[in-house]
């Protein structure tokens, strides 16, 4: 089955962030999927992917936790594709897949804990984990997307920020860097491609995969703020009016540290932060409310209005 067909209906793993701080990402992802005729079936009784915290204590437990999500999707719901819009979840499911394919110790722990928990053990290769970017790019594609645009993004200047976990470490993403049409780990472009198809003008953004210090935002907030402020300034210097995000942690980090940079360091930036699904939703004719723009801390509605978008 080709990707276009396989991705029409996928298991949806929102993860915890999309039910909290990333609520607008959840809302806009679902709304865009519906608008494009793509079906999402939420993984039943899903659990934490192991995030960063569990992985630090015991990476094999994180592998098990992620494997349970994939097991439910495959063995209880009959899916062959799991779509995770959160970079952390996406990364962890990919890491679990890699560990289960390459590490006997991870397989043993997963088997033992799956049996104890009373569900079928996940076997590497049962599902393909994809990101929301892969989902729209491969199920719809730029050409079809452009044909469905009702409110062009009208040359809105966008810096696309992918963050770290969408591409690193490279070995857990074997499908990337695999020739024409594939995503690149050093210069990712799927978000650029989709937003350009929706009428945006992508700026040359040098820090699209730069670390935002997100994981250390509590233990070393000043470092995170400096890293984020530099990312925001770089986007502005490149001419961006908006930074598009595809990860709830990146998004929240950019929004929060934008405020902190001003209050603690006197660094003021005006660039707005929006999820790429919010921008696509607007381009497809959805209302700002429908894609949760009112939930963003960084309110980009005026920037869109100024460009007569939506």
């Amino acid at each position: 089955m080709d990707k276009k067909t396989a991705y029409k209906k996928v298991a949806y793993y929102p993860g915890c962030a999309l039910e909290g701080t990333g609520h607008a990402y959840n809302k806009s992802t679902r709304a865009v999927g519906k608008k494009l005729g793509l079906e999402l079936e939420e993984v039943k009784n899903w659990n934490c992917c192991g995030a960063m915290e569990v992985k630090n204590i015991d990476p094999k437990i994180q592998t098990y936790l992620s494997s349970r999500v994939m097991s439910i999707a495959a063995n209880e719901m009959g899916h062959s594709v799991v779509m995770a819009p959160c970079n952390g979840c996406y990364h962890n499911l990919k890491k679990a897949e890699y560990d289960l394919a390459h590490d006997e110790g991870s397989r043993e722990v997963t088997e033992r804990l799956s049996s104890k928990a009373g569900h079928t053990t996940y076997e590497a290769g049962q599902v393909e984990t994809i990101h929301a970017l892969d989902w729209i790019k491969d199920a719809i594609g730029e050409e079809e997307l452009a044909a469905r645009v009702k409110n062009s993004l009208n040359g809105l200047k966008i810096a696309n920020y992918y963050g770290c976990m969408y591409t690193r470490p490279r070995h857990i993403f074997p499908e990337k860097d695999s020739g024409p049409g594939s995503e690149s780990t050093s210069a990712p472009h799927f978000m650029d491609d989709l937003l350009a198809a929706a009428g945006a003008e992508n700026v040359d953004f040098a820090l699209k995969t730069a670390c935002c210090g997100g994981a250390h935002t509590l233990s070393d907030a000043d470092t995170s703020t400096k890293l984020v402020a530099n990312i925001l300034i770089a986007a502005e210097e490149a001419g961006a009016e908006v930074i598009a995000t595809e990860c709830p942690t990146c998004h929240t980090g950019l929004e929060m540290h934008q405020i902190r940079a001003e209050t603690n360091f006197g660094i003021k930036t005006n660039v707005k932060v929006m999820y790429f699904t919010q921008l696509l939703g607007i381009a497809l004719g959805l209302s700002p409310r429908k894609v949760g723009l009112q939930e963003n801390v960084s309110d980009g509605r005026a920037a869109l209005k100024a460009r007569q978008i939506g």
């Binding site: 690193r168 670390c211 994981a215 250390h216 070393d220 470092t223 890293l227």
Partner: peptide, 19 residues
């Protein structure tokens, strides 16, 4: 900033990108 952060907190980048 990144390397400076690592000077203060060696674990920056440890458990996210490097997995």
């Amino acid at each position: 900033y990144f390397v400076g952060g690592k000077m203060r907190n060696a674990q920056i980048g440890e458990f996210c990108c490097s997995s």
